[in-house]
């Protein structure tokens, strides 16, 4: 038998005391966390939840976890239903000049009056594109180039004339060529003849 006194002394020796004193929740935050923990513990283990509510809780939990994972991967939700997203979304609208909404006639008159022949040539070309679209010879789309429209025109005569006018427009508009009164009068005449040609082919 060990000496009772010695045993008692050893028991009271802090070096042999392996139990740490648990500090109580002092701060408000710790108190709040403790209450939340208690509530969850109470909800899941002590409350007599019905089978249905328990099932609903698990479904909601799985849903939340799934949502967080999807958000983290930035996945397209439509992919979950086997649907491939249709096209690239561009988040802003580029200012487009719809030739079908412009009053080209009055703009052209103004440009001619002010001797702005480059601008007038551009408006004449836009007018041609509008008339070609109305005649269903081309399908107007913002990203299409002049050459794309030329290749769309199937009627050889119209195509040839349109190609000539396109070359002229490009030299003037993209090439920065200047037009004098007589030169523009010639260009104007050519566009006029082309518009008559389009009426004939309607």
């Amino acid at each position: 038998m060990p000496d009772q006194k010695k045993l008692e002394a050893l028991k009271n020796d802090s070096d042999f005391n392996y139990f740490e004193e648990v500090k109580t929740d002092n701060t408000r935050w710790q108190g709040f966390l403790y209450k939340v923990k208690q509530w969850l513990k109470d909800f899941f283990y002590q409350r007599q939840a019905s089978g249905f509510w328990e099932f609903l809780m698990y479904v909601a939990l799985v849903g939340v976890i799934g949502f967080v994972i999807i958000k983290m991967l930035k996945m397209d939700m439509r992919m979950l239903f086997g649907k491939k997203s249709s096209s690239v979304e561009i988040p802003y609208d580029i200012v487009e000049e719809n030739i079908h909404e412009l009053d080209l006639e009055s703009l052209l008159e103004n440009a001619i009056t002010q001797h702005e022949y480059r601008k007038a040539t551009r408006l004449l070309y836009l007018q041609s594109l509008k008339k070609l679209t109305e005649a269903e010879l081309i399908n107007w789309k913002p990203g299409k180039t002049n050459r794309s429209y030329i290749s769309e025109v199937k009627q050889p005569v119209v195509r040839h004339e349109f190609e000539q006018l396109t070359n002229m427009f490009e030299y003037v508009w993209y090439g920065g060529a200047t037009l004098g009164d007589s030169l523009f009068a010639e260009a104007h005449k050519k566009f006029g003849q082309f518009h008559i040609l389009l009426k004939e082919h309607k």
């Binding site: 004339e161 000539q164 070359n167 002229m168 030299y171 003037v172 090439g175 060529a177 200047t178 037009l179 030169l183 010639e186 260009a187 005449k189 050519k190 003849q193 082309f194 040609l197």
Partner: peptide, 14 residues
């Protein structure tokens, strides 16, 4: 259709 206007414009070509 003769394309005189085009010819005249093309004179500016480098």
């Amino acid at each position: 259709m003769e394309n005189e206007a085009l010819t005249l414009v093309q004179e500016n070509k480098t």
